[in-house]
Design a protein around this nucleic acid. Structure first.
Length: 423
RNA sequence: GGAGGAAUGGCAGAGUGGUCGAAUGCGGCAGUCUUGAAAACUGUUGAGGGUCACACCUCCGGGGGUUCGAAUCCCUCUUCCUCCGCCA
């Protein structure tokens, strides 16, 4: 959520910047400013009424103290009108504030200057690539075939127990999952991220804090009886660890990593693109989250990108990094880099990590602030990224490392797996 | 599940109807001293709204109520603590 003050002061700039998202902000910004004006006008009236009523109360108190009860009682009658008025104004104010809030929730984050223009993922800008795409033989298989062949992931079994999109990992498949999680967490903690195990369900306030609510609630599984949501990513509980917190500059950077399952409803997606591990309702992910001083958040973003590069380099997977264009950029993000690994057997790129700077967009909702060195209160910047999402990394390993003898495990994972071949 | 107690500023912790937005300590900031740092001392320092700036308004876990007036009294919800019970 953008700060109202920012909108007031930079109306034109914001409308202009949001064009990159193909978002016509002009009408909504105008509406916001109008509602803001209205809210302030009501607020002023209410303030004046309350001020008068406060004044009278004080006088009454003093009269009572000095024993002039009759005069005091006379004054009391005066206050009843004020009470009526302030009650009405208070209702109006609540309504006006709610209307304003509703509009504010609709405005996406302002894209960073480096975000390219564009309408869709076609227009994302490749900024880096590494690794070599292997040439596989005629009989190369997509990962879902490999999973079946080596009996390491059972999709049908998951359908029986739960439904589509809830795979069952078996044997070496399950072990490899565990190895990847341990390996990622080790890499992240080595880089200074503190490991946390957050709750897998969050309350409404947390959903609002990171921006999943009110808009994208259809994306999350909702446990109605307790009004809790299954997390779609560890970003939600981990970032919300510091909702309503006040830091000082020396506390930065704040760095967390956590492994969690992630739950996404992803309603309405069918076909080849959701085959196998490509898109699931439940999947594992190791996340990194940072809270930063505004001056250093982009350096932090670069650091996160380098960190993920390091991991993918060690896994020896062919990948590329995209800077998301305005049309593909997430609602809450100012700048996002997507990492994609090449799925050789499917002949397509699969997103395995998304690293973003949200600047103050989340912090504003979270009330995540700090006192700067001059004693002023400022909003912090929040960032997060996957390091990494498991299923597609697994798909990449299975497909790119398949040989006649079986699937070769990347060297760095062998100590974690205890085997070097799936056969 | 039963019985009590508690929730106050960045943190700790006073305050139980009328200049209380709130003592005090810590922390933060500024300064004195010092070659520098530490210590000590002095000053300053809650958040949000509002204003050109003041004024002014709101906020003492959330919501509601009593009262001319509520951090303070009542109801309710949430969370935490202690004791008992239950489960592991």
């Amino acid at each position: 959520m953008l700060q109202l003050q920012t909108i007031r002061e930079n109306q034109e700039k914001i409308v202009d910047a949001l064009k990159k998202r193909n978002f016509d902000a002009a009408p909504i910004i105008a509406k916001i400013l109008e509602l803001d004006q209205e809210r302030r006008s009501i607020q002023t009236q209410l303030d004046n009424t309350l001020a008068e009523s406060n004044k009278l109360s004080k006088e009454i108190g003093m009269l009572f103290k000095s024993g002039k009860a009759a005069e005091a009682n006379a004054l009391k009658e005066k206050t009843s009108n004020l009470k009526e008025t302030s009650k009405q104004l208070n209702e109006d104010l609540t309504a006006a504030a709610a209307a304003l809030q509703e509009q504010l929730y609709l405005v996406p984050n302002i894209p960073h200057g480096s975000v390219p223009k564009g309408n869709s993922e076609e227009d994302n800008e490749e900024v880096f690539s590494a690794g070599t795409i292997p040439t596989l033989g005629e009989n190369a298989l997509p990962h879902w075939e490999l999973a079946k062949k080596y009996d390491i992931i059972d999709f049908e079994l998951g359908v029986k127990v739960t439904g589509a999109g809830f795979p069952v990992y078996k044997g070496k498949g399950a072990k490899l999952q565990r190895a990847l999680i341990a390996y990622f967490l080790d890499k992240n903690t080595e880089a200074g991220y503190t490991e946390v195990q957050p709750p897998l369900m969050v309350n409404e306030a947390s959903g609002y804090g990171t921006g999943q609510l009110p808009d994208k609630e259809g994306q999350m599984y909702h446990v109605q009886a307790d009004n809790l949501y299954l997390i779609p990513t560890a970003e939600v509980p981990i970032t919300n660890l510091h909702r309503d917190d006040m830091f000082s500059e020396k506390d930065f950077p704040i760095k967390y990593t956590g492994y969690t399952p992630c739950f996404r409803r992803e309603a309405g997606s069918y076909g080849a693109h959701v085959r196998g591990l490509n898109r699931l309702h439940q999947f594992d992910k190791v996340e990194i989250v940072r809270i930063e001083h505004p001056d250093s958040s982009y350096a932090a973003l670069d650091e996160m990108v380098d960190h993920v590069k390091g991991i993918l380099g060690e896994l020896k997977l062919p990948y590329r990094i995209l800077r998301l264009c305005g049309g593909d950029l997430g609602f809450t993000s100012a700048l996002t880099y997507d990492f994609e690994v090449f799925s050789t057997a499917q002949d397509r790129w699969l997103e395995i990590s998304s690293v973003s700077n949200f600047e103050t967009f989340q912090a504003n909702r979270l009330k995540l602030r700090f006192k700067d060195n001059s004693g002023k209160t400022q909003l912090a910047h929040t960032l997060n990224g996957s390091a990494l999402a498991l299923p597609r990394v697994l798909a990449g390993i299975l497909e790119n490392n398949q040989t006649d003898k079986g699937i070769k495990i990347p060297e760095v994972l062998v100590p974690y797996c205890g085997f070097d071949l799936i056969d």
